[in-house]
Design a protein around this nucleic acid. Structure first.
Length: 614
DNA sequence: GCCGTTTTCGGCCCGACTGTTTTCAGTCG
């Protein structure tokens, strides 16, 4: 079963598409055919939802880059496990070529040449065979290869083996924290006016590969800038967690930090910093669309700024020699020059953000400061919970809520264990808890509180809580914590049954995914969204580092169905309450405005919502 | 092969770096 799961994963599909692109390149097909497959591969790889699920939702062809041919063949692939068309293309090249392409610095052409010249035709041993060929100096003797390429290939094989033994991407919060550490470290150098993250980290994608960071230095006319740049690079590579230095040039450097994470730094002068920031923030598909858009206006974009191009009807495009490159110190100026409204990094994914910004229709996205409360917090109060107990007491949590400037919070311990305990005893435990929390009212805290509970949704959809105990809470979060493998239909029925209980206001971490560990389960999302909208139940955007659940793409779909959200931390300790930023980022990536998020409401409005009065 | 406010044809993003060339091809982001 597991191999089947892999077979349909986005990663596998992207690989197939990329391999087909490689064949088109090697067979000298129309180069735009290759580009089309590469674009499709890119989109699939970047998708935060499994393509197969999107296909099951009937939305495969809505994905940019997936048209008639690729789309219908993917359908065939999902239905039958293979696509005749894809296979017939892939067969044109020995499969070992595709394996070698996994090595860094080896692309289609080099891979093909190596396979052909060295007769590397056995998939199982191809990497080893190549390694041996290098050791026997056979690669250096090939035309267009040399001693250095041979050494590089050996190094690439080492790297490949090391990398494939690890999970490749880390959850966003880990990367974010590390970047913050690096940023604080860099800011100690005088002359640095700004530090930013770049790439997927700046766009706050749920999982991050490498960490990219840029620093801005003042523009000066003399050679001081160069000296400063050198100084920064030298300082950067001495970051305490550095394991090894990969490269270290004039204005960029690359290091590996503990535990084996690549960090790239680039240093750029103030006057062109905006263009650089835009360029390296991506996403790739956003940048491609942006350049296409700019080209229609006779403008060409690169990391240093904007140039005017003479675009002729003929195939020759020539750069107007008289026009200098226009520099931009900020991204705002860069986008505005193109006639576009500023586009926040989180939504630069090449969907329809450029069209909307052209019409000035990108709405203001929700921000961390809009959040007025956290509704999913676990305390240390021992009610014999079914899952982990928190670390802090109710009053400690309230203090922390004050520090965060929250107007209200919700205590949502896990329900008491159901096994072995009679219903009456559970209700008694809940009753005791109710009285303990109510006593807090006398304490002096700015933040007000609600008595909530996170109740397990059992496999049959019943809540792990006696009906009588429901009277002892203000609201319920219901979540799936077990039996993740039901089919879509049963799972949907199960969740809807749970949502039908009184006082249920939030569906907790709706897909149950654990980044890098467990795929989320599928639901009939259309049905769930309809149900939640009609019953005024909010979908949770859970900020827990390994969850970030609901995923951003489903947030956007739900948003289009006019569903509301609550952003929670699922904190099990006060420290975790600081993680709200991650959930907010997911919401922003899903295009949420302040109004779409229930816990941006002030206390009285929130209370009305809780009581179904608004 | 994809796509559309130059829409069903005729376009299709940009530059750095590296190693191998002796003017450029391949790879990467």
């Amino acid at each position: 079963m597991k191999s089947d799961q892999n077979k349909f994963s986005n990663k596998e599909i992207a690989k197939i598409l990329r391999n087909i692109a490689a064949v088109h390149l090697l067979k000298n097909e129309n180069r735009f055919k290759r580009v089309a497959y590469e674009n499709a591969a890119e989109t699939v790889e970047q998708s935060s939802r499994e393509l197969r699920d999107i296909w099951q939702d009937g939305k495969l062809f809505d994905i940019p880059g997936i048209g008639k041919t690729i789309g219908s063949n993917l359908e065939e692939y999902f239905k039958t496990g293979k696509s005749k068309h894809f296979n017939s293309i892939l067969k044109k090249v020995p499969s070992t070529v595709f394996i070698l392409m996994n090595l860094p610095t080896i692309g289609p052409k080099k891979a093909y040449k190596l396979v052909k010249e060295l007769k590397l035709l056995i998939p199982k041993t191809v990497i080893e065979d190549l390694q041996n060929a290098c050791k026997q100096n056979k690669v250096a003797e090939l035309e267009s290869f040399g001693k250095k390429s041979q050494e590089d290939i050996l190094e690439a094989i080492k790297l490949f083996r090391k990398r494939s033994s690890k999970s490749e991407r880390m959850p966003l919060p880990y990367a974010y924290e590390l970047a913050k550490e690096l940023s604080d470290y860099l800011k100690k150098i005088p002359g640095i006016t700004r530090v930013d993250t770049l790439g997927s980290l700046r766009r706050m994608v749920a999982t991050i590969g490498d960490i990219d960071i840029s620093v801005q230095v003042e523009s000066r006319k003399d050679h001081k800038v160069e000296r400063l740049q050198k100084e920064i690079i030298n300082y950067f590579v001495k970051f305490p967690k550095t394991i090894s230095i990969d490269s270290s040039g004039e204005n960029k450097a690359s290091i590996i930090v503990s535990p084996n994470i690549r960090v790239d730094l680039r240093v750029q002068e103030e006057r062109s910093y905006g263009a650089m920031l835009q360029y390296f923030t991506g996403s790739k598909s956003h940048n491609i669309k942006l350049r296409e858009y700019a080209l229609k206006k006779g403008l060409s974009l690169n990391e240093y700024g904007i140039k005017k191009v003479k675009s002729q009807k003929s195939k020759v495009k020539s750069i107007n020699q008289n026009s200098k490159i226009l520099e931009f110190s900020t991204e705002e100026k860069f986008y505005n020059f193109l006639g576009l409204q500023y586009i926040p990094p989180e939504i630069r994914e090449g969907t329809n953000e450029i069209e909307l910004s052209e019409k000035n229709k990108v709405s203001k996205l929700v921000e961390l400061k809009d959040i007025k409360g956290d509704l999913h917090i676990h305390s240390s109060y021992d009610l014999k919970p079914s899952h982990d107990l928190g670390e802090n007491s109710y009053s400690e949590i309230l203090e922390k809520a004050d520090q965060l400037g929250y107007e209200y919070i919700g205590f949502t311990d896990h329900n008491p264990k159901t096994s072995g305990l009679p219903e009456q005893e559970i209700t008694e435990i809940m009753n005791l808890r109710y009285r303990v929390i109510k006593k807090l009212s006398n304490k002096v805290n700015e933040a007000k509180f609600f008595i909530g509970l996170e109740a397990d949704i059992q496999p049959d959809g019943r809540l792990a809580l006696p009906e009588k105990a429901i009277d002892l809470v203000d609201y319920l979060i219901v979540s799936v914590h077990s039996a993740f493998n039901l089919d879509v239909k049963s799972m949907t029925q199960r969740v809807m049954k749970a949502l039908s209980y009184p006082k249920v206001k939030i569906l907790g971490h709706p897909t149950g995914r654990l980044l890098g560990k467990r795929e989320g389960f599928e639901l009939d999302w259309k049905a769930i969204f309809d149900f939640c909208r009609n019953k005024k139940i909010a979908l949770e955007i859970n900020s827990w580092p390994e969850r970030l659940d609901l995923p951003d793409s489903l947030v956007r779909e739900a948003l289009n169905q006019k569903v509301k959200f609550v952003i929670n931390t699922d904190a099990h300790a006060n420290l975790h309450l600081d993680g709200m930023i991650y959930g907010v980022s997911v919401a922003r990536r899903g295009w949420c405005k302040k109004d779409d998020i229930i816990n941006t409401l002030d206390y009285s409005a929130f209370k009305r919502w809780l009581n179904n009065k608004s």
